[in-house]
Design a protein around this nucleic acid. Structure first.
Length: 844
RNA sequence: GCCCGGGUGGCGGAAUUGGUGUACGCAGCGGACUUAAAAUCCGUAGCCGGUAACACGGCUUGUGGGUUCGACUCCCACCCCGGGCACCA
């Protein structure tokens, strides 16, 4: 019988659905249906992959590879007796999907339905064991009412706030962007240069969790590079705040210094052009006009990204001084273009021991005073003569303060900080690079932020929070705040959302005074949708009679945190950080009993096409559909898995698919032969011993390789085993055959099911069959191939040497070989090195 | 500039973690079947030299050095590719 994949795929897809093979047991009642299908209730295993955003022309081949890759892992876990939950959904409520709709001239609400159909059809064809009953879409009001609910919880905890500040604005997307969405000063998505605009925006206080977000990383089983990326992004920096005061003015301020060892060298102070204090410094002085003008120029150049090179500085003296903070004299205050307003306090004391400070001082003729010198006398002289900036050398010898004279820079840090604290100069402080999460977007396609502003209450000083007068959360029973289906959804570019012109939407009553009030018209960032979807999946079908929380506590305690999460490294600092933040916050509200959402995370690699990156502009983007139609899901799954280890990416070459097609064809053909009576159960056949060992070795290897996501080597092992089977058909038993079919099941779910329930006669699915166990006794070799080296070069091998052989016997054996005797030419070996069971090296 | 990955045949990639470098597959070559092709099967295969053919010898894991009986693997220096961060004081 020829293998007709399209017929067989269809057949088993519907059988699996009917038998609910991939639906885990969330409740008692569903356990009963499981018993009927013969599937035992195992340990919960939440096998998660990042859900796609259906913005473009369907699922990308890279996405398919990841999804089938995750599924292979899940299928192993299921066969090993776990109750595997593998959900799928669509992250279609946001700017990606909206931009796509705009591009093709569709309404996002209508387009969502079209994309949805397209994606679900594709996703159904790749042979994954998705739990379709639990699918979700982030634009479904039944979902986003809870996204809004989470916003309200954060608001109530004081973790959501509104503030006017300079924010990143994308002129093309016509919306603000989170810091994380600005890459190289450009919009992450459309590459337009982001501008700075002063706008009032909603933020989440991610900074409040900076320390924990950082510390918890140590406890997570995640790809190391993702952890490093998060650590860098959080950017913890320990140092001191130096207490400072403007001379002749009663202005006090702090200056952050993370390298305080050389504080005595500080001879001037620089302030960021954006700093509001500048106006006070120069007010009414002869410097006012020129300084304020220079400030404007610098601000403009900065926001346009003009300053690129490290030495490209602008600066101007303010006429003011910092009042003698170290007893070494007053420090002139300069405005300097290189100072970052958003970091530390926006004001920095400068010294000869910093590259930038040094260049700046030279450029504007500001005096420098080094206080640390290299051991090398000639070099030290150069430092003294200010020939170069001598920075951060652990071996540098301190000169001042005199208490530390002679000690090494690398060893005095803590002592200097303690010294400064004792003297009252400074206080130990920590700063983070991480900023609060800018959550509001001036767009249409997203969950409306569920807040109401009441003018009347604001005027009279009322409000849910005293620092935000007039603001009230939408009462929970009124959720969802539904996104209206309106014609004009186009971004306005005015700094407010299209919803701001829809009176029927924004007009509402104040939850407090019942007077007329106005809804917030911004929507929330897409990343909020995806920051909690994994909490929703297992509880999608639990119908809460009352409006309580978005998940069932009992189910959540059983199924979370997520056991295995696999997705793209491009989300290292966006989705993965936001999810952690939201989970932590919910944990602190006692709504979750864990604070980290993903116990294990692995990043997958990227796929290239014939060695080149896939991109729309190159026109080499692979649409998976045609390949799945041509070769079938099993072949494609195997090819994508065989390309390279999952975390490494790989190169898509159509020719390579043939190898896997051939392999499965051979499996099928052998299966046809195994059915014939002469092959049936010959388990007593002595000749099958060697095959037996090969089978057990393969069981071990395949399970280990899948566990490590090294699918390529697992498949290679299966190929080798098939070769053995074909070479020794008379020794092949049904039980051997059954092992191969089961080991293959995670990769080729359809064909193996056909064989399992057909020729092998099972009544239940192979995907809930038990994973084969290997017998450690049976994989022990008692002989090996002895490799004989002379001076480290392989010269001879001897097959079938007993593992138990002693070192003396090996030496005798090796020296007795004719070939070795020739090479020795009568000489006596100086030395023999024998590595048990492997190799002997004769040194002459 | 700093921090991570990575560099192995014509190609994708293996290598028990210091012990036979190139498993498995693709492409190639030779052969069988066929009128022929496709499909399938068998064999072959790193490079250079050597031989009528074997035999055999030398070289080879980005480059150069080191440690070791033995290095793709460990150490030092450098080059290239991919990714992340970046006037963060």
């Amino acid at each position: 019988m020829k293998y007709d994949f399209s017929k067989i795929e269809k057949k088993w897809r519907s059988a699996w659905e009917k038998e609910r093979v991939y639906e885990p047991s969330f409740s008692e009642s569903s356990v009963n249906t499981k018993v009927l299908t013969g599937r035992s209730e195992g340990k919960p295993f939440y096998n998660l992959m990042m859900f796609p955003y259906p913005s473009a022309e369907g699922l990308h081949i890279g996405g398919v590879r990841t999804f089938t890759g995750v599924d292979i892992y899940g299928r192993l876990k299921r066969m090993q007796g776990n109750d595997v939950f593998e959900p799928m959904g669509l992250d279609g409520f946001g700017i990606h999907s909206e931009n796509y709709a705009l591009k093709i001239g569709a309404h996002p609400m209508a387009q969502a339905k079209v994309s949805e159909k397209r994606f679900y059809k594709q996703l159904a064809s790749i042979g994954n064991g998705f739990a379709w009953d639990e699918k979700l879409e982030t634009y479904d009001p039944a979902y986003y009412q809870w996204t809004q609910w989470i916003f309200i919880q954060l608001w109530k905890k004081g973790l959501a706030y509104r503030k006017k500040q300079p924010v990143n604005w994308c002129p093309s997307c016509k919306t603000v962007l989170a810091n994380e969405q600005v890459v190289d000063g450009k919009c992450e998505r459309c590459n337009s240069v982001a501008e700075k605009r002063d706008l009032e925006q909603w933020f989440f206080k991610t900074t409040e969790y900076a320390e924990r977000l950082l510390k918890n990383l140590d406890t997570l089983d995640w790809s190391e590079k993702i952890k490093i990326a998060q650590r860098n992004w959080i950017g913890k920096s320990e140092g001191v705040n130096i207490h400072s005061r403007v001379k002749d003015l009663d202005i006090k301020f702090e200056v952050f210094d993370s390298v305080p060892q050389t504080f005595m060298a500080q001879t001037f102070t620089v302030i960021a052009p954006e700093h509001p204090m500048i106006a006070e410094l120069v007010k009414g002085t002869k410097f006012e006009k020129s300084v304020m003008h220079a400030v404007e120029v610098m601000k403009k150049k900065k926001s346009n990204g003009v300053y690129k090179e490290e030495s490209d500085f602008d600066g101007i003296f303010t006429g003011r001084y910092v009042d003698n903070p170290f007893g070494t004299g007053d420090l002139p205050i300069w405005v300097a273009s290189f100072v970052v307003m958003e970091y530390g306090t926006g004001i920095v004391h400068c010294s000869a021991h910093d590259e930038r400070d040094f260049i700046f001082a030279k450029k504007f003729n500001i005096p420098l005073r080094p206080v640390m010198f290299p051991n090398d006398k000639a070099l030290a002289e150069k430092v003294r003569n200010l020939e170069f900036a001598y920075c951060k050398d652990p071996e540098g010898i301190m000169d001042q303060p005199k208490e530390f004279s002679g000690r090494k820079w690398g060893e005095v840090r803590n002592d200097v900080i303690a010294f400064m604290e004792r003297k009252g100069i400074a206080k130990r402080t920590v700063y983070f690079r991480l900023r609060d999460w800018l959550i509001s977007r001036q767009r249409y396609w997203g969950p409306p932020i569920p807040m109401i502003f009441c003018e009347a209450c604001a005027k009279e000083g009322r409000g849910e929070r005293k620092e935000m007068r007039g603001w009230y959360a939408v009462p929970e029973e009124d959720l969802p705040v539904k996104l209206p289906n309106v014609k004009n959804f186009h971004p306005m570019g005015t700094g407010s959302s299209p919803l701001a012109s829809i009176k029927t939407f924004y007009k509402t009553t104040c939850p407090n005074c019942q007077g007329e009030a106005r809804r917030e018209t911004d929507v929330s960032d897409t990343f909020l949708d995806s920051a909690w979807y994994f909490l929703r999946y297992p509880s999608v079908n639990t119908k809460n009679s009352k409006f309580e929380i978005p998940w069932n506590q009992e189910i959540t305690q059983r199924w979370l945190p997520v056991h295995s999460y696999i997705g793209g490294a491009e989300h290292s600092v966006l989705h993965l950080l936001y999810s952690r933040f939201v989970t932590m916050a919910l944990h602190d509200m006692k709504l979750l009993n864990f604070e980290e959402p993903f116990a294990k995370f692995r990043a997958h690699g990227l796929i290239t096409k014939d060695g080149a990156k896939m991109s729309k502009s190159k026109g080499n983007v692979i649409t998976p559909d045609e390949y799945f139609e041509k070769f079938g899901a099993d072949v494609m799954r195997m090819y994508l898995a065989f390309m390279a280890p999952l975390d490494q990416g790989g190169d898509f070459r159509e020719a390579g698919i043939l190898g896997l097609e051939r392999f499965l064809k051979r499996v099928w053909n052998l299966g046809q032969k195994v059915q014939s009576p002469k092959l049936k159960d010959q388990s007593n056949n002595l000749k099958s011993e060697n095959l037996e060992m090969a089978v057990h070795k393969t069981i071990k290897k395949v399970a280990e390789d899948i566990e490590n996501l090294h699918y390529n080597t697992a498949i290679s092992a299966l190929m080798i085993l098939l070769n053995e089977f074909e070479k020794h058909p008379s020794s092949l038993t049904l039980s051997h055959w059954s092992v191969l079919v089961r080991l293959l099941a995670p990769f080729a779910p359809f064909m193996t099911e056909e064989i399992w329930r057909g020729a092998l006669g099972s009544k239940t699915s192979i995907h809930i069959a038990s994973w084969p166990e290997y017998d450690p006794e049976k994989i022990k070799d008692d002989t090996f191939t002895l490799v004989i080296q002379v001076n480290g070069k392989v010269r001879h091998t001897v097959e079938g040497v007993a593992v138990a052989i002693s070192e003396e016997e090996v030496s005798a054996l090796a020296l007795s070989c004719e070939r070795i005797r020739e090479l020795l030419d009568g000489k006596t070996p100086q030395r023999m090195v024998y590595i048990r069971g492997r190799i002997v090296n004769i040194v002459i």
